[in-house]
């Protein structure tokens, strides 16, 4: 026993080193495989608080630009009001029907932390479960798809963005309707890749890429980006399409978190097929 203690005391430096490295490696691995350890993400209250006060201080610098964006969105929304359509009884009628109930609800949230330069990028929002946000809600901005809520605490939530090599989003070509998986390759934060589009599909540079609506997180037709380059490797029967994102991730300030009221219903139905 004494020898054992002597051994520990003599080699305490190496033993402590190994212990600490095992603890941190455990955190890395645990996080990667199960995405637990959520207490140590930036949605926890300490780091969330620091980020919030910092972004409160710096947001004044962006006010002008945010105003412009809001004004643009206002005009867009106004153009969609019933009053901006010609109201003719012939083809337009409102019937109250419980099936026409609103399926998606939106909540605005402010981005208080953001990164684009890692392989796994996340953003932090200033709203959490107290504001009704739960895991796996979709996040969009005025310009297009941003990501999916990964963790929530009481007042903050962290969002896994398209710029994260772990996230794949189902997208489709707006013109032709062919769908595939969208994912990031970890290089340029302005581009993602759309795979699994068969080579008999007609793809033109500039075609819009939108969400497919298959995932129950995003509704169909939300803009993701536009086709920039179409590649085809020899012997492959699928295109590799480089998509320019419509959202500028370096410049995110306000986003909308959307909840799908019928998600449970859809998932239950789909699971009952197995």
């Amino acid at each position: 026993m004494r020898n054992f203690f002597h051994f520990i005391i003599r080699n305490h430096f190496i033993l402590l080193f190994l212990l600490l490295e095992i603890v941190s490696f455990y955190m890395v691995v645990n996080y990667n495989s199960y995405q637990r350890a959520s207490w140590i993400s930036s949605s926890n209250s300490v780091s969330g608080g620091v980020y919030r006060s910092f972004s409160d201080a710096t947001q004044y610098l962006q006010l002008k630009q945010i105003n412009e964006e809001l004004a643009k969105e206002n005009t867009y929304l106004r153009s969609q009001l019933p009053s901006s359509f010609k109201d003719s009884k012939d083809y337009f009628s409102l019937v109250y029907d419980s099936l026409n109930k609103r399926q998606y609800t939106y909540r605005t949230a402010k981005v208080i932390n953001n990164s684009v330069n890692k392989h796994f990028n996340y953003i932090t929002l200033n709203k959490g479960s107290n504001n009704g946000i739960v895991k796996e809600m979709g996040v969009i901005s005025a310009k297009g798809v941003v990501g999916i809520v990964k963790d929530v605490s009481d007042h903050y939530s962290s969002v896994i963005t398209i710029l994260n090599t772990r996230l794949l989003i189902s997208g489709k070509l707006k013109e032709s309707g062919f769908f595939g998986a969208l994912g990031w390759d970890g290089n340029d934060y302005r581009y993602v890749w759309l795979n699994e589009i068969p080579i008999h599909a007609h793809v033109v540079v500039g075609d819009l890429v939108v969400t497919s609506g298959f995932s129950s997180i995003f509704p169909e037709g939300i803009l993701i980006g536009s086709v920039e380059v179409v590649e085809r490797d020899k012997g492959e029967s699928f295109y590799r399409i480089k998509v320019k994102l419509s959202v500028d991730f370096k410049d995110l300030s306000y986003v909308e978190v959307m909840s799908n009221k019928m998600k449970e219903e859809q998932l239950n139905l789909e699971n009952s097929n197995d």
């Binding site: 600490l20 941190s24 490696f25 955190m27 645990n30 300490v46 620091v50």
Partner: peptide, 27 residues
């Protein structure tokens, strides 16, 4: 030595806390 290791652990953990990278900076 032991203090050096503990300080490094604390420093890495603090940075990890802020950048959503559990364990990486600590390691």
């Amino acid at each position: 030595g032991y203090l050096l290791l503990f300080i490094a652990f604390l420093l890495g953990l603090t940075i990890d806390l802020f950048s959503n990278t559990p364990g990486m900076h600590t390691f």
